[in-house]
Design a protein around this nucleic acid. Structure first.
Length: 573
RNA sequence: GCAUCCGUAGCUCAGCUGGAUAGAGUACUGCCCUCCGAAGGCAGGGGUCACAGGUUCGAAUCCUGUCGGAUGCGCCA
């Protein structure tokens, strides 16, 4: 069992003993008792707020409870010193052997060190990317893709059963436009000179689609009426776009489990509507005019509405248009109905910042359909500003020229793209500077973390050349300065759990930067004082112990990078 | 008009499921440095955590309001 849960158990056991002995009133709730590393390392290795949290319900002074608890905890063999501090904190200092044995645990568990079972195998669906299949993936999709994928991995590490999902918007007017644009390219492939009118997709990426359509169908649809080819071309063009999107995602190392087609919803929409009707949440009504910018073409009309306002939404939402056809929202409700039917315990969606206004109605729908049993967590992913040496990169969507994911990955590599996308909370804006992200300096976290890993790898290489036999590592040879690094490394299981609970994969990137800093600091100490070096030809036993230490740190870095979907480098160039 | 997110050191950001003197990098100042992998090391100065109230033993963190910024609002997708 990992360090902190283990000590939480010790503290709980001690409190239960005090309750059993009548020193504390029986039946106190320990729910708010926390056992954590103190913010300031000089306070010790571990702290608990138990005395302060329990003071009021127990009707005792915090320091009195702390003193009783201290006596109990002091008897634990792992504890070197207990101190009551401040308003009633209990600070524990642990024996150095505790850190040595934690280090051994890292070595034993290896690539699984940090995996947790707090997810209890609950099934969770993470839907991300869901870019419209009308073009290749561009920069705007990139961050959501990376954050979603890393979050999915993180949840797997935390013990959830994760499904990675992509929703294909292949049923609206946009895909008709795609089909028409593809038809133009098809005619072009037949030798016509075409002009792409306003409102069509102008991008060059449709040229090969036109060629593919020509190869499949020959010239039979060149001048045929639209009704004859629209559905066919739509299906084919969407399929080709999805191939391309999958290839783009693969460049980022992303492979989703389920690609769910909106067009395939079919009877699900009616089912979802019936489910809501059965709950009395559907009615015919007229919505008020939207506020703000006046909508010229708005007029009040009776529609089929969902009472989403009962579930925290700002207004009720239309499911069916006045002509009886479904709204886009109805499709989304049906899609989430389908997810619920598939039996997930929790749902997570990643939305671009431009869909922020959609959050409440989706949560309302899921709450209504699942009777509040299945939480839908929606993460908003903010814009990325692309820069080149501080200057904004110019993009023109109108001409169809934008920076694609393929461009980015080709220029700086998958690992750099992924890492940088995780260096800020997803709900704040991110600058991506092509020049800075490949810089080899302390400021660049990708480099800094990879550099630590490369240095560790180089120790092994150096040793292979040096030709001296190492004994089995004896961790007892590690001193306090060596163990300082272990104290950072053993935080990893906590980071996994906390980041997973908060659904914030960026915390992994920050943690790895901290761990790398601890390692570099140790390394640099060796430059000032040769006695502190990892490899000491004059001391094989110490070298063996320090290498075990370095390897463990390298292992934790690899595990963290694995969650981020970044490969660890053994060498930098 | 309403909603969501944001406002922390000169700059870029952590911390936000309440805890002890608010952290990191960068920039700035002063020393040191050619090192197991150069792409530095150590130390120091720098903050009314936008503002005002409230809850609490305790608030950057929770609640309310104000100001400022971003985004969104539809029978579109």
């Amino acid at each position: 069992m990992n360090l902190y849960p283990r000590f939480a158990g010790h503290v709980a056991a001690a409190l239960n003993e005090l309750m059993a002995a009548g020193d504390l009133p029986a039946g106190l709730s320990l729910a708010n008792v926390a056992v954590e590393p103190p913010r300031d390392a000089s306070h010790g290795d571990m702290a608990t707020n138990a005395a302060m949290v329990l003071a009021k319900p127990a009707g005792l002074k915090p320091r009195d409870i702390a003193t009783m608890l201290a006596l109990k905890l002091n008897r634990l063999p792992e504890v070197a010193e207990v101190e009551v501090a401040g308003p009633g904190f209990l600070n524990l200092r642990l024996h150095a052997d505790v850190w040595r044995s934690e280090l051994a645990t890292i070595t034993e568990q290896g690539a699984d060190y940090g995996r947790s079972s707090i997810g209890a195998n609950h099934r969770i669906n993470v839907e991300y990317v869901s870019a419209n299949p009308t073009g290749p993936m561009h920069m705007g999709h990139c961050r959501g893709a990376v954050v979603g994928d890393a979050l999915a991995s993180l949840l797997e590490w935390a013990g959830y059963g994760v499904t990675r999902e992509y929703y294909i918007n292949d049923a609206g007017g946009q895909v008709d436009t795609l089909a028409r644009s593809a038809h133009l390219r098809y005619r072009e492939a037949l030798g016509e000179t075409v002009v792409i009118p306003e409102g069509f997709y102008p991008g060059d990426y449709l040229i090969p689609v036109g060629e593919a359509l020509l190869a499949e169908f020959g010239g039979q649809y060149q001048s045929a009426p639209e009704a004859e080819w629209l559905g066919l071309f739509r299906t084919r063009a969407v399929a080709l776009m999805m191939d391309r999107i999958r290839a783009d995602l693969a460049m980022l190392g992303i492979h989703q489990d389920v690609f769910f087609s909106e067009a395939s919803l079919g009877p699900r929409v009616q089912e979802a509507l019936e489910a809501l009707t059965a709950k009395g949440l559907i009615y015919e009504g007229v919505l008020e005019a939207p506020k703000g910018e006046a909508a010229e073409d708005w007029e009040p009309r009776p529609q089929t509405l969902f009472k989403s306002s009962l579930f925290g939404d700002d207004s009720d939402r239309a499911m069916q248009k006045s002509d009886g056809s479904w709204t886009y929202f109805a499709g989304d409700v049906a899609y989430h109905w389908d997810k619920l039917q598939r039996g997930y315990d929790a749902l997570v969606n990643l939305f671009g910042a431009d869909h922020g206004g959609y959050v409440k109605r989706m949560q309302a729908a899921v709450r209504a359909l699942s009777d509040g049993k299945v939480p839908l967590d929606i993460k908003i992913v903010q814009m990325v500003k692309l820069l080149r040496a501080g200057e904004p990169v110019k993009m023109s969507k109108r001409s169809g020229n934008f920076v694609t994911i393929a461009d980015m990955v080709e220029e700086v590599g998958k690992d750099v793209v992924r890492f940088i996308m995780l260096t800020k909370r997803s709900d704040s804006q991110l600058d991506f500077d092509f020049a800075k992200v490949v810089e080899q300096s302390r400021e660049n976290p990708v480099f800094y973390v990879q550099y630590a890993h490369a240095r560790i790898a180089s120790l092994r290489r150096k040793l292979a050349e040096a030709d001296f036999d190492l004994p089995e590592p004896d961790l007892a040879l590690l001193d306090e300065a060596d163990l300082a690094m272990v104290k950072v490394a053993v935080q990893w299981p906590r980071i996994v759990e906390q980041a997973a609970e908060a659904r914030e994969p960026h915390r992994v990137a920050f943690y790895l930067a901290d761990l790398a800093a601890a390692f570099h600091s140790q390394w640099n100490a060796g430059n000032d004082d040769a006695a502190r070096r990892f490899v000491r030809a004059d001391a094989p036993a110490l070298t063996a112990a320090r290498l075990a230490l370095a390897d463990a740190v390298g292992q934790v870095i690899r595990n963290g990078l694995a969650v981020m979907g970044v490969e660890a480098a053994d060498e930098l160039h």
